[in-house]
Nucleic acid binder design. Structure first.
Lengths: 227, 227
DNA sequence: GTCTATAGTTCGATAGAC
DNA sequence: GTCTATCGAACTATAGAC
């Protein structure tokens, strides 16, 4: 029996939270990093709010950078696994899937992940937005490692199902789609301000209903364009 | 003659940089905040690279928060002034402007501002991306103060020139347009990675040529939708 | 307006007991 | 695996000379 297995056994036997301290640290990391940013977040606060000693975080994750990456790795592998599964399932149905269903498959797992979390649901989504929009080498390294492979699959899917769409335009289409999706994931509250309370970026279902047709029309416009 | 005027006179007579220390601090603030983020940036580094004493920054701007806001205020007023001027000029021509020209007027001033700056041109654009995508109270306060008024003008313009576009959908359209524009302003280099070097998010002209049709098609799709 | 020097805080990381 | 205690290295902001 590995040490990893033992750790999980102990976690399950923990009556108070039914969760290992290891996972509690990762959970709280999402909350704190989301609210304060990487530099603004402190290991002290994560430790306090997770109810563990500060030293324990260094024992499990060595330093702040590796804690952050472990947090990204855990959640991104889970969400992107769902996405890959969804995408492949779509292509195994009768006939090629519609552009709209492809796009829904791109964004829905992020929403589902948010809803199932305790506390602030969209914490990891907000972290993701800050990573994806950073030009820093480290952040782009994380994006490349945990998100580029999935991006490539979606780009290939777009080329397959949209007649006349070049790979170059499919890359732009994917980037623009992600850009629009950020509006939903960032949860800035700006739509509400700009619309006197009518448009709510906290309601993911409503946003999806707006985002999917918007992106789909944009992608199809590339069909009538050179390159 | 005001003290403000005197300060500028002295700046012009400065042979070495032809720029006051006050402005040098703001210029270097853009570079450092863009590369390190608000929390990650340090007043020490800004002072050193601007060639001034650290204490001078506190003399002019009191603290880090006010330095940041002064930097945002200077550049946003300049760029948004151009935008407003462009937008109003479009409506004074013969007949209403096209959706495409409205969108070009939204993004081009950001590009021009980048090109005319010394050193790293897109520094302020990257800062803007991080502010706009943050859910923090302070960042949203800055967005509301320096960008919401312009956003309202663009939303009104969209309602005017796109037949059948409700104000609610115009707000979403504006938000999504900004989201796509982030792809250009963030300068992450991801399009290049995903396309094996073909798509370059460093070339703003090429990006505009892709962004404008994409967004325009998306906006027009709202015409055929309820709400 | 500009500088030097430093006070006062807070943070990441380590050491070592249990 | 978990905790307490602490070191050393930053950082912001202020005080005071010029």
């Amino acid at each position: 029996m590995t040490l990893e297995t033992l750790r999980k056994r102990k976690a399950i036997s923990n009556a108070s939270t039914s969760e290992s301290r290891y996972d509690a640290i990762l959970d709280m990391s999402e909350q704190v990093f989301a609210n304060s940013g990487y530099k603004g977040a402190t290991i002290r606060e994560i430790a306090e709010r997770a109810g563990v000693a500060q030293g324990l975080i260094h024992y499990h994750f060595r330093n702040k950078e590796e804690l952050f990456e472990a947090m990204v790795a855990r959640r991104s592998k889970s969400i992107n696994g769902q996405r890959m599964h969804l995408l492949r399932a779509l292509f195994e149905e009768n006939g090629p899937p519609s552009l709209e269903r492809i796009m829904e498959g791109l964004f829905r797992p992020t929403i589902e992940a948010g809803l199932s979390q305790a506390g602030d649901g969209g914490a990891f989504a907000r972290i993701l937005v800050s990573i994806a929009n950073s030009a820093g080498e480290w952040e782009q390294g994380l994006t490349a490692k945990y998100y580029d492979p999935m991006g490539q699959e979606y780009i290939s899917a777009l080329v397959k199902i949209v007649p006349g769409l070049s790979r170059e335009n499919a890359v732009w289409a994917y980037m623009f789609a992600i850009g629009v999706g950020m509006t939903m994931m960032a949860k800035t509250g700006r739509p509400r301000r700009l619309s006197n309370g009518i448009c709510d970026d906290g309601d993911a279902e409503v946003m999806l209903a707006k985002i999917i047709p918007f992106i789909s029309a944009g992608v199809r416009s590339f069909t009538k364009q050179p390159n």
